[in-house]
Design a protein around this nucleic acid. Structure first.
Lengths: 138, 138
DNA sequence: ACCAAACTATACCTTAATGGTGCACTTTGT
DNA sequence: ACAAAGTGCACCATTAAGGTATAGTTTGGT
């Protein structure tokens, strides 16, 4: 019941980029060094964020990455889901086929209780943006 | 970002026992069959619930398991934590040593934001008991 | 006293997910 | 043309999760 280390990295990457001037292009090398993330692993992670349209990527020399939206337009949920895919507290919440209930799967009480809690959790994650996150920093 | 299948099994086991008469002793075999859980795996899981004082266990012939508290006194959180240990959305919330932040770990904004969301999530999980869960069942 | 039916404990195995690397390739500025 | 960036895919190593095996203990019934 926790986010992966890769997601944690990703959150810090976006936080880091959020502190730069909007539009600034920063190369992976520099992110890797300041955030202490293995470069190759970081590149893969950055690609996921790019595919999720959270980042712009620039190839060739003087290439790098920049935010594709303002920090206030990117939530914790956006980043975690870009890395891990949709968040489901219980597998059966994604696909009822995974429900372990033997009998009538449409009336699974475990399923129902967890789904309500999950909804609130996702709303909370979606409500916090990187503008919120960085506004207390020096 | 999801609970394990073992936790899911455990929730269904407690839900199942909650529907029995309070004090009834039910053998693992029967739980395994009705809930479609491999017996050996179930026994291990039941022991965890026993060690967490959620269940009473009876050995010898006519042995089995029974709830050690009323359904209303057992929450989703109790069960999940009995199986998985304390829930931390981000590893660094359990032990700051795991914080990936390079510089001042006491001022990690990712950490702070997630910890507030986690608190609410845990409160939600702790608020739902198995009395709530089973009251809509036939 | 003995046996069978239950749980206990620990160790082990198998598979999948996670974290991380390597290599060949493409793009772009100078 | 070439070096400095990112791309894409394949691969490897470690860990965690799900599940199984084996030997032992407790208890009720004969």
């Amino acid at each position: 019941m926790k986010i992966t280390q890769e997601s944690d990295y990703a959150l810090r990457v976006i936080a880091y980029l959020s502190k730069a001037e909007y539009g600034d292009i920063i190369e992976a090398q520099r992110i890797a060094e300041t955030q202490a993330i293995p470069l190759r692993f970081l590149l893969k992670l950055l690609r996921k964020l790019h595919h999720a349209d959270l980042l712009k990527s620039y190839r060739g020399s003087h290439g790098g990455f920049a935010l594709n939206r303002l920090p206030g337009e990117i939530s914790l949920k956006d980043v975690i889901e870009a890395i891990e895919g949709p968040i489901y507290v219980n597998p059966c919440l994604g696909n009822i086929q995974f429900c372990n209930l033997v009998t009538d799967k449409t009336e699974c009480q475990v399923h129902l209780a967890l789904s309500q809690i999950q909804e609130r959790f996702l709303r909370d994650l979606a409500r916090v943006t990187f503008a919120d996150l960085i506004k207390y920093e020096s």
